[in-house]
Amino acid sequence: MKAIISVTGKDSVGIIAKVSAVCANYKANITEITQSVLHEYFAMIMLCDITGITVPFAEFSDQLTKLGRDNNLEIHAMHEDIFNSMHKI
């Protein structure tokens, strides 16, 4: 089971570290990262294997949203099925 974590907002030191720490904390395995910085804006998409996460996905997602709020970033974790449904036939 995979989830996609999207992070957008103003660039600052340690964004990847903070998001990765939450993933590690709940045993979500990061399998792929793409990220870019355009002017001072940061955008990252992480693909995570959430098969072994230690809490329900909703709680994992809430933790990331909270991390985003605390750091002035938009962070959303969404199950990959929504993207597959929309963009693959």
Partner: peptide
């Protein structure tokens, strides 16, 4: 991996 453009499109549809 899914296309980054597709992922951003979905997120934009929902958020904006």
């Amino acid at each position: 991996m899914l296309d980054t453009k597709d992922i951003m499109e979905t997120i934009q549809m929902i958020r904006e």
